[in-house]
């Protein structure tokens, strides 16, 4: 099932949990994906650890450092995925900074990612202008390049980004890094509604989300949410029920 179809076919609001690949050991990766799928996750955003994660706040950065200390690499994560593809059907979206991909090789990356069943990729330090240039002549083998839209993107930029969006649009909810926030900017809900109206693909809101009321409010204004720091923290602390509860809340949102 394509990423876009999976999001369109969800119950309630789409819920995409972010996990850091290799945090807690790479041997835990497939079992964690299986459990999140069983809880009702729409897709999984799988973070690749990077030494200099400038778009991330302290929780995800710390998880990345734990994974790096364990020797986790992009190549190792892909190897692990290919071994587990028969065990789950939830779409996988890789979240990786550009340099590990660049080092792997752009075409080899898309070849390998597609072979491993990866549905999409999010590269937070690759704005769409640069992606056009970098991916020119590259065969992406059906791996969607998911664009980010932020509160500082102007209307013209947003229209250009939307016109080329694949998989879904990642709508960043705040000016800042990933984390857990208590209040979103006032203009956010209107921004999300407008994006959803104009976008040819689903719109998911992410950054800062960690409470049920936030999942509900954002899930009503667009197609669903991406939740990172909260999930990473809960899994690290062994609080899986908190994750299950938040996913269940998303499924109760009326579309």
């Amino acid at each position: 099932m394509s990423l876009e179809t999976a999001i369109r076919n969800r119950d309630g609001a789409a819920f995409v949990p972010y996990i850091m690949a290799g945090d807690g050991g790479l041997d835990q990766l497939i079992p964690t994906i299986e459990r999140l799928e069983a809880m009702g996750a729409t897709a999984i955003e799988l973070g690749i650890p990077f030494s200099d994660p400038v778009a991330d706040g302290p929780i995800i950065e710390a998880a990345g450092m734990r994974a790096l200390a364990d020797g986790v690499t992009l190549s190792g994560v892909l190897d692990c995925l290919i071994e587990g593809t028969e065990r789950f059907s939830v779409p996988i979206v890789l979240m990786t900074y550009l340099n590990p991909v660049f080092r792997f090789g752009i075409q080899p990356f898309f070849d390998r990612a597609a072979a491993c069943g990866v549905s999409g990729v999010i590269i937070p330090d690759l704005p769409f202008e640069e992606s056009l240039e970098l991916f020119a002549g590259i065969e992406r083998n059906g791996v969607a390049v998911v664009p980010l839209v932020t509160l500082t993107s102007n209307k013209q930029r947003i229209d250009t980004i939307l016109s080329q969006a694949e998989g879904f649009v990642y709508a960043v909810t705040l000016k800042g890094t990933t984390g857990k926030v208590d209040a979103f900017p006032d203009e956010l809900l209107a921004h999300l509604r407008s994006l959803t109206e104009r976008s040819p693909v689903p719109v998911l809101a992410g950054f800062g989300v960690h409470r049920e009321d936030q999942v509900r409010a954002l899930g009503e204004a667009c197609d669903g949410v991406v939740v990172g720091s909260f999930i990473v923290e809960a899994l690290h602390a062994g609080r899986e029920q908190d994750v299950a509860d938040l996913i269940a809340a998303a499924r109760r949102v009326k579309a």
């Binding site: 030494s51 200099d52 340099n99 991909v101 660049f102 330090d125």
Partner: peptide
């Protein structure tokens, strides 16, 4: 170093085989 991306720019960087900055 080898060519890579750090802090907004493509340039030579010190990195390992997996693209982690050293």
């Amino acid at each position: 170093g080898e060519v890579g991306v750090l802090h907004g720019s493509l340039m030579y960087v010190l990195q390992d085989g997996a693209g982690q900055i050293q």
